[in-house]
Design a protein around this nucleic acid. Structure first.
Length: 554
RNA sequence: GCCCUCGUAGCUCAGUUGGAUAGAGCGACCGCCUCCUAAGCGGUAGGCCACAGGUUCGAAUCCUGUCGGGGGCACCA
């Protein structure tokens, strides 16, 4: 729709130029937008105002000129109007709208998909929680955002891979192994202290308990180093399995789980550092090896090999991103929590140093989730392990509510999540509002079947019977699914889907109250059933992208 | 101190390459079920778009500064 209008408007501009009515050198891209007020029409273009200066003509004059050209060759538009200070407003033709309803039914699950992404290969890395403990609620948000973004970009014609980077190397992992070992020893009455910086959560004891249950006390005799290593490996395995299971129950499945340790073991980090050294971006100082990230806009240079010879996390991350680009992605998207945003500049700088275009690395910084219960904030401490895990949240509110609420805000703003409010099945809860529309539709279709009313075969019903404002308003909303998917994908803004879902549900509920579907007027019943089916398709497609179920009854 | 981010209705937030009279949900108030699901619909009230300058035909949107909330400034991950 928007594409069509853009094309014909561009054609009108071109025509005006070739006929000499418009003297313009550079034609800026035509932007088709929604008018603020529906009274102005369905779509509008501001191109006349943009061209005014170049063409040395009054905007209104240009608008009149273009409107005249537009009105000639356009069947999808009923009226092209000009409004001061120079807007060109389009009013869609009703026959076009009613025909479009049949098109939605014909396309079904495919309706709304498009090629805005032009087949670009994109990797999205998200969640990437350390395998040293359970997922927290913030991870849940990244899971919802990353997965929905992957869904909507796929629908917009991108080729997407989902990846989880596993930080299974280094101090934290070692400390985790030592912590489990200590708890294990304690289970057998041996007084082994947890390290100062170790992991104190109750889940550490659970893991130790499981090892004790399955394998007894045989590890007690092993030397400490060996024991720590065994426990580290065991604990890591268990935590990753747990993370996978929780994410799967949330409907999020990754294509690739990428191990940091594999980079160390393959020696690729040293290779990448050598490459950077050869290209002159590396220097030594104070006994450490540094990457000169300030050459690429970072605040300060960064250590990649510490004085003690150990690689930093950053070094591994450079090799990891080198690997991503080596795999041939056109674009790489990382979703990070706000607590990592200080890391963005150096990662972009490293990308440049490696010789890749830093704009190919997009980093989405997401604000955190604040948990509440009945308006009271829930304090969370990672250190003591006293916190609501993502798994517990899921158990309380269920995946649909969690996924939906995590996507109701732009990633730039933090989500205040009240557990009691989320559980309450009330109007405070937008997820039910949307699902209810779907359930209502299913109910109408069931009722029609009960009464022996044949469901319309696509294309047969007489669309011209749909003339009520509520009907036409609903149709317009349904048709904008495509633009919504385009915008959500191109702007990396999956939260737009929930907004769209609510608007569509609202348009349906209004229609429902004003227009009875199943009546004695057979032709009208058929036409409205067609519209209802199309609405069901649109709501279901939208909820599917969000990752929320579309219930048949509630 | 420096960097990032946010500041829009009582509350939570939309408003994106600068456009028309500033938008939604919740909350408040007033209405609507003989009827396909009232988990719904309609209406009313509610605004110095944090503040001050600047850019231009036009600024919630872009620039500069100030104030306020959040986050970050490791040879941790």
């Amino acid at each position: 729709m928007r594409d069509r209008l853009r094309q014909i408007t561009e054609a009108a501009v071109a025509a005006a130029i070739t006929t000499g009515q418009l003297a313009v050198q550079d034609v800026p891209p035509v932007i088709i937008d929604r008018p603020r007020d529906k009274a102005f029409g369905d779509w509008s273009a501001n191109i006349a105002m943009v061209l005014a200066k170049q063409a040395k003509k009054r905007p209104l004059e240009i608008a009149e000129l273009l409107a005249a050209l537009l009105a000639e060759n356009c069947d999808i538009v009923a009226a092209v109007e000009v409004a001061p200070p120079g807007f060109i407003n389009f009013r869609l033709a009703t026959p076009y709208l009613t025909d479009a309803v049949k098109e939605i039914i014909r396309l079904g699950p495919e309706f709304g998909k498009n090629q805005a992404g032009a087949g670009e290969r994109v990797q999205i890395e998200f969640v990437s929680a350390n395998p040293t403990g359970p997922l927290h609620v913030g991870h849940g948000r990244w899971a919802a955002v990353g997965d929905a973004l992957a869904n909507v970009m796929t629908a917009a014609g991108y080729k997407i891979e989902r990846e989880f980077y596993v930080n299974d190397f280094g101090n934290q992992m070692a400390l985790f192994g030592v912590s489990v070992a200590a708890r294990y020893a304690q289970l057998f009455g041996i007084d082994e202290a947890l390290p100062e910086q170790g992991y104190h959560g109750a889940y550490v004891t659970d893991i130790a308990q499981e090892i004790a249950d399955n394998e007894g006390e045989k590890y007690l005799k092993l030397p400490a180093a060996e024991r720590h290593d065994i426990f580290r490996r065991h604990a890591e395995e268990q935590v990753i399995e747990h993370i996978k299971r929780v994410l799967e129950s949330f409907g999020v499945v990754f294509d690739i789980w990428f191990s940091e340790r594999s980079l160390h073991e393959a020696g690729v980090i040293d290779q990448v550092i050598n490459r950077l050294r050869d290209s002159g971006h590396v220097f030594e100082q104070d006994g450490a090896v540094w990457l000169r990230t300030t050459d690429f806009g970072d605040d300060k240079d960064r250590v990649i090999i510490r004085e003690n010879g150990q690689l930093t996390y950053f070094a591994a991350d450079i090799a990891y991103h080198e690997d991503k680009f080596e795999r041939g992605f056109d674009r790489v998207i990382n979703i990070w929590g706000a607590d990592h945003h200080g890391y963005v500049a150096r990662m972009k700088a490293a990308t440049s140093a490696l010789g890749y275009d830093p704009d190919k690395l997009e980093i989405i910084i997401g604000q955190l989730v604040n948990l509440f219960r009945e308006g009271e904030p829930l304090r969370m401490s990672k250190r003591t392990g006293e916190m609501v895990t993502f798994e517990e949240l899921l158990a309380e509110v269920g995946p649909d509510v969690a996924r939906y609420l995590f996507l109701t805000r732009s990633t730039d703003s933090s989500v205040d999540f009240d557990i009691e409010l989320a559980k309450r099945q009330s109007q405070d809860n937008p997820v039910y509002y949307v699902q209810y529309a779907h359930a209502r539709i299913s109910s109408i279709l069931r009722r029609a079947a009960e009464r022996g009313v044949a469901l319309p075969v696509a294309g047969v019903a007489d669309g011209s019977l749909l003339v009520e404002p509520a009907e036409l308003e609903l149709i317009k909303h349904l048709l904008s699914l495509r633009e919504t998917i385009e915008d959500a994908a191109l702007l990396r803004a999956p939260y737009r889907l929930t907004k769209y879902a609510e608007e569509t549900a609202a348009a349906f509920h209004a229609f429902y109250v004003q227009c009875r579907v199943i009546t004695t007027d057979e032709a009208l019943t058929q036409a409205r059933l067609t519209l209802v089916q199309a609405t069901q398709i649109v709501i279901k497609n939208t909820l599917t992208l969000i990752g929320v179920s579309a219930p048949e009854r509630m």
